[in-house]
Simulated assay, not measured.
Amino acid sequence: MKVSIIGTTGYGGGELFRILHHHPVFTIQSVHTTRNEIPLFEEFPHLNGITNQTLEHIDVEKIAKHSEIVFIAAPSGVSSKLVPAFFRTGVQVIDLSGDLRLIDGEEYLKWYKHEPVESSLLEKAVYGLSEWNKEKIINAELIANPGCYPTATLLGLAPVVKERLIDPDMIIIDAKSGASGAGRSVSKSLLFSEINENFRIYKVNEHQHIPEIEQQLNRWSTGISPITFNTHLLPITRGIMATIYVQLKENLHTDRLIELYKEQYLWSPFVRIRPKGNFPSVKEVAGSNFCDIGLQVDERTGRLTIVSVIDNLMKGAAGQAVQNANLMNGLNEKTGLEFVPLYP
Rank of each mutant, 00 (worst) to 15 (best):
K2L: 08
I5T: 04
I6C: 01
G7S: 10
T9C: 05
G10D: 04
G14K: 09
L16C: 07
F17C: 05
V25M: 05
F26K: 04
T27Y: 05
T27V: 04
I28M: 07
S30M: 01
T33S: 15
T34L: 13
R35P: 00
N36E: 15
I38K: 09
L40Q: 13
L40S: 10
E42R: 13
F44R: 15
P45K: 04
N48Y: 05
T54G: 03
I58F: 02
D59T: 08
H66L: 07
E68C: 10
V70A: 05
F71V: 03
A73F: 07
S76E: 01
S76L: 00
G77L: 02
V78D: 11
K81G: 03
V83W: 04
F86C: 01
R88E: 15
T89G: 09
V93L: 11
I94R: 10
I94V: 12
L100S: 05
L100D: 06
L102A: 08
I103F: 10
E107F: 00
Y108G: 06
K113M: 01
H114F: 13
H114L: 00
E115M: 02
S119C: 02
S119F: 00
S120E: 14
S120W: 12
K124R: 15
A125S: 10
V126K: 10
L129N: 03
L129C: 02
S130K: 03
I138L: 03
I143W: 11
P146W: 08
Y149F: 15
T151D: 02
L155N: 12
V161T: 12
V161S: 05
I166H: 06
P168I: 05
D169Y: 09
S177D: 00
G181D: 05
G183C: 07
S187P: 00
S187W: 01
S187E: 04
S193Q: 14
I195H: 03
I195W: 00
I195T: 13
N196C: 11
E197D: 13
F199Q: 07
R200H: 13
I201Q: 14
V204I: 13
H207R: 05
I210F: 07
P211I: 00
Q216D: 07
N218P: 07
N218R: 14
T222K: 15
S225E: 14
P226V: 03
N230S: 01
T231Y: 06
T231E: 13
A242T: 09
A242P: 11
A242E: 07
A242V: 00
Q247V: 11
L252S: 08
T254M: 05
L257Y: 06
E259H: 12
L260T: 03
Y261A: 09
Y265T: 09
W267G: 02
S268M: 03
F270V: 02
N278K: 13
V282T: 15
N289S: 14
D292T: 04
L295Y: 07
R300H: 12
T301K: 05
R303P: 02
V307R: 13
G316C: 06
Q323S: 12
N326D: 10
L327K: 03
M328Q: 14
G330K: 08
E333P: 14
E333W: 02
K334G: 01
G336T: 08
P341S: 11
L342F: 11
